Each structure stands twice: as structure tokens, then as C-alpha cells.
Amino acid sequence: MGFQLQNSDFNKILNELKKEYKIYAPKRFEKRGTFSDTDMIRYGEIDSVEEIVWKEKSEYSPKEIIFPITQTLFYFTEEEYKVPKVDDKKIIVFLRPCDINGVRRLDTIFLKNGEHEDFYYKRLREKVKFVMIECKESFENCFCVSMNGNYTDNYSIAVRFEDGQVTLDVKDEDFKGLFNKVGKEVDFTPEYVKENHVKVEVPEVDKMPLEIFNHEMWKEYSERCIACGRCNVSCITCSCFTTQDIPYEDNPKAGERRRVWAGCHIDGFTDMAGGHSFRKEYGSRMRFKTLHKIYDYKKRFEENMCVGCGRCDDRCPEYISFSTCINKLNKVLKEEEKDEE
């Protein structure tokens, strides 16, 4: 069912929803960008439609809402532990189709990756409803069409923002009553990106020989990558973390265990007991990430892990392009296949 209403009326609905939900959307944080006079666009709680940044791509994904950067797993003393409570409010997130598809990848990793579901992820994820921001024009560095991340119908509401008004496709029965009161009924079907400026050809899983692990192409990234991890933390589908025990100063035998984001590009990620460490060369980390996104995950779950949002390319200070890396890999494999003929 479609509705159209003015921003002022939409804000009234947001205020009504805030009694029951926390509402997150991409918003502008002034003077918080890379340089002192630049802004940052990332996810935060909103109070009005005017706060939502929909004409620009957010620099970071919404994954921190359901997979926090730092999350206390439990508090402990000498004799017992206690799992922290979560806020009673449910969650609404405004996000683009690629990010909805990215969250589905996170669902697979945390909820369908083996016999046990991740308790901490699940209890936040169950609270979330999606409001899909219509995205019909590609941003720079996006390659969502190539990765099948450009389309989804997995949303409670789809919204088209226009100057002064919003148009919505409301699928969730929980919300239809709110819009019936103030919105004008219209026919509305959201549009999607049909073509990106960047195109990627993903290699087929069954044409990935073991020899590719030691190919010369990875050495380029040993020279260029600085292991800052920006690609990991901005990515909607990166799900790696480490754990830390934090003892309290007044009683070192009590404290809390936290999980904290980590990533395959970051120094120390592969450190093990006994002083062992793996993938010390930065090129081997690029190889690991690339093959995990388009080979390992796909071999298990029959779709690419990467959804083509392009944030890794946007955020890399060394201008390393993940889409270019995939195309280079595909080119190498085709050349080797031709040589064998």
C-alpha cells in the first residue's frame, strides 16, 4: 500500500514511533570527517526526516546497530557472571538495498553458520525493522549490480525522499494504521539501481585453482596496503571480532568480557598463543579477504559475501580498489585458463 505525505506529517509519525522504537538513519556529523573542516555521514538516532542524509552515501554501514563496535558479553566476579540486559525498545533502521542484503549476510554468519546461533546478535536482530531508502542512481565506486546487491523486497517500508515530502510503500501491518490517518493513498513501487559506473566480473567458484593463492598479483598489495583496517570497519559484511577481559581497578577479580570489532587487515588479528602469527604480509591479507568475499562464502552459501556497496574503496587512504582487485583476479584466471588450452 502506497502513501504520500508532507515532511511535517512524517515527522509526527516518527515522534509517535519513537515511543516504541529507536530510529536510526544515515545522518551528518559536522566537523567529524577525515579533515577538521569536513563532515562525516554515518548512522545515528534521528528525530526528524530532515536529519536523514539520502542524497549521499554513508561512509560507514549500519551494521554497528545490531553488531556493536564494542559489546559487553557478560560481567564477572570470582564466583559468577551476568549477561547485560538490552534496551526494551525495538529498532527501525533507514538503509539502502545493498545494506539490507548485507545484513542478510550477517544473519547467515551469526545465525546459520553451524549448529549454534549467536545469542547476542540474535537478541538485537530480532528487534529490527527495515525502512528501505529508494536507491535508483549509483554512487561512485558502487558495484552492487554485479554482486546482486542492488535489489531486495525485504523491508517493512520503502521510502522515496523528495523535497518537502515522502512517498512510501508500506508492507508491514504494524505501520499501515499510522499512515492511513495522515497520508494520501498512491500507487508506488520503489525503483532500484540498474547499472553502476563500476562493473565487476566475479570468477566462478569451480574455476579457482589452489595456485592462485601464491600468484604474483597479491604482492602489489603488500607494497600499497598499510593495514589500517578501514575497509574492514566500513564493510557491511565484515563480521570478525576479538574478545577482551577488562578487570576493574578497584577489584581486579571482577570485570567484564567484551567483544570488539577486528578484521583480517589489522595487525595482530592472527596472533596466537606461543607467539605464532599468520598472514604477516599485507598482500596475503588482501588475498584472504578477497577470496573470503567471493569464494569461501559463496562455496558454502551459494552467493557472494560482498554486496558491492563500495565503501571499502571510498575509505581506503591508499586508493586500493576492491572491485579492481576482483577484476584483476578474474583476468588472471582467464589468462591461465587460456594458457592451458
Rank of each mutant, 00 (worst) to 15 (best):
Gly33Ala: 07
Ser58Cys: 05
Lys63Leu: 00
Lys63Thr: 05
Ile52His: 04
Glu20Val: 09
Lys12Met: 09
Ile41Gly: 01
Glu51Asp: 11
Lys12Thr: 09
Asp37Arg: 13
Lys57Cys: 02
Lys27Ala: 04
Thr38Gln: 15
Tyr21Cys: 01
Arg42Val: 08
Gln4Pro: 00
Arg28Tyr: 01
Val49Asp: 06
Gly33His: 11
Leu14His: 09
Tyr43Phe: 12
Asp47Thr: 07
Lys31Gln: 10
Lys19Met: 03
Gln4Met: 08
Ser36Cys: 06
Thr34Ala: 14
Asn11Ser: 09
Arg42Leu: 10
Ser36Arg: 15
Ser61Asp: 02
Lys18Val: 00
Thr34Asp: 10
Leu5Arg: 12
Asp9Ser: 15
Asn7Leu: 07
Ser61Pro: 03
Trp54Arg: 06
Ser61Cys: 11
Ser58Leu: 00
Val49Met: 08
Glu30Ala: 13
Lys22Ile: 05
Glu20Thr: 14
Ser36Ile: 14
Ile41Val: 15
Asp47Cys: 08
Lys27Thr: 13
Val53Thr: 11
Tyr24Val: 01
Asp47Arg: 11
Ser36Trp: 13
Lys22Ser: 08
Leu14Ser: 13
Leu17Phe: 14
Gln4Tyr: 01
Tyr60Ile: 04
Val53Phe: 00
Lys22Ala: 03
Lys18Met: 11
Ile65Val: 10
Glu45Pro: 04
Phe10Met: 14
Asn15Phe: 12
Tyr43Val: 00
Phe10Trp: 12
Phe29Gly: 05
Ser8His: 12
Lys27Phe: 08
Phe3Ser: 01
Lys55Leu: 11
Lys31Asn: 15
Asp39Glu: 12
Lys19Val: 05
Gln6Cys: 06
Phe29Ala: 05
Phe35Asp: 15
Lys63Gly: 00
Ile65Lys: 02
Phe10Leu: 13
Lys57Val: 03
Val49Phe: 02
Glu30Val: 13
Glu20Arg: 10
Glu20Ser: 15
Asn15Ser: 15
Trp54Lys: 11
Ile13Pro: 02
Tyr60Arg: 10
Lys27Pro: 05
Ser48Arg: 07
Ile46Lys: 05
Phe35Lys: 15
Tyr24Ala: 02
Gln4His: 07
Ile41Ser: 01
Glu20Phe: 10
Ile13Cys: 03
Glu20Leu: 12
Met40Lys: 15
Ser8Phe: 07
Lys63Gln: 09
Gln4Leu: 03
Asn7Cys: 06
Asp47Met: 07
Ser36Ala: 12
Ser58Arg: 00
Leu5His: 06
Asp39Phe: 09
Ile41Gln: 01
Glu51Leu: 04
Ile41Asn: 02
Glu30Lys: 15
Ser58Ile: 03
Glu16Val: 07
Ser36Tyr: 14
Phe35Ser: 12
Gly2Ala: 03
Tyr43Glu: 00
Gln4Thr: 09
Asn11Thr: 05
Leu14Asn: 02
Phe35Gln: 14
Thr38Tyr: 10
Glu51Ser: 12
Ile23Arg: 04
Arg28Thr: 12
Asn15Glu: 13
Leu5Ala: 06
Lys19Asp: 09
Leu14Val: 09
Trp54Asn: 13
Glu51Gly: 05
Asp9Gln: 14
Phe29Leu: 11
Ser58Tyr: 03
Ser48Gly: 08
Lys22Gln: 14
Ser8Gly: 02
Trp54Gly: 06
Leu5Thr: 07
Leu5Phe: 07
Val53Gly: 00
Leu17Glu: 03
Val49His: 01
Lys12Pro: 00
Glu64Ala: 07
Lys63Ile: 02
Lys31Thr: 04
Arg28Met: 08
Tyr21Ala: 06
Arg32Ala: 15
Arg42Lys: 13
Lys63Met: 04
Pro26Arg: 04
Tyr21Gly: 08
Leu14Gln: 08
Gln6Thr: 14
Glu56Arg: 10
